[in-house]
């Protein structure tokens, strides 16, 4: 009598085992990469109501970040400037540009421009801009090289592990106060020594306790 199962079926358990393993690795790997903020959040660049160029204002014209985001050193929130801030210059500059129409409209009507927020943390995570600036963490560490960006884009994942990496070892991100808004800043050779000194001087002790941010 002929065999019910031909000989090749002997290899079937191995083949099925390998297929299941590959599927598992594939599924885990898929969510590992495509589910992480590195993929979902980095590169977020919404279209703003006005084509405002950070590259032009902060880069080519060399305006300081704090001219518009003025509360960043005093407050947890780095404010989005009101139309008044734009009009400080644009009552005189760019009067003939149609791209500025929405700004002038907002100025005359008193209705604020609805900018779209790019860097957004969840509500349950507390973040304080002023504390980070006081410690000497530059804008670039989280926001990337804004002076080169036509439109603002998120360049860091802003995930919890990313926050913790720096909170556990902030040495490479601490700068002297005059370099805070500099872009393309690279730590000098004696950075470790500088960081050690400044951490002691300013009593920098970044919280790694849950309640440091979640409260």
């Amino acid at each position: 009598m002929a065999q019910i199962f031909p000989e090749w079926t002997n290899r079937l358990p191995v083949i099925i085992g390998a297929a299941v393993l590959m599927l598992l690795v594939g599924v885990v790997g898929f969510f590992w990469y495509y589910g992480s903020p590195k993929y979902t959040d980095v590169g977020y660049r919404p279209e703003q109501p006005i084509k405002y160029s950070h590259k032009l204002h902060a880069g080519d014209l060399g305006m300081d970040c704090r001219y518009c985001h003025s509360s960043v050193e005093q407050s947890p929130v780095a404010n989005i400037p009101p139309t008044q801030t734009c009009m400080n210059c644009h009552t005189l500059v760019g009067l003939d540009k149609p791209t500025l129409d929405p700004v002038r409209q907002s100025w005359t009507s008193g209705v604020p421009i609805e900018w779209i927020r790019v860097h957004k943390l969840p509500d349950y995570a507390y973040f304080n801009h002023s504390a980070h600036l006081r410690a000497g963490v530059g804008c670039e560490s989280c926001h990337g090289n804004v002076r080169e960006m036509e439109e603002i884009m998120q360049v860091q994942p802003l995930s919890m592990s990313w926050c913790l990496d720096c909170h556990r070892n902030p040495d490479q991100h601490l700068r002297p106060p005059e370099d805070l808004t500099k872009m393309n800043w690279t730590p000098p050779e004696n950075q470790a020594e500088f960081a050690g000194r400044v951490k002691k001087e300013l009593n920098i002790n970044p919280p790694v306790d849950c309640s440091g941010c979640h409260r």
Partner: peptide
């Protein structure tokens, strides 16, 4: 505990 956090930040300044 958020008040402790705030007081610590103020003290650090």
């Amino acid at each position: 505990i958020h008040r402790l956090q705030k007081a610590k930040e103020q003290a650090a300044v």
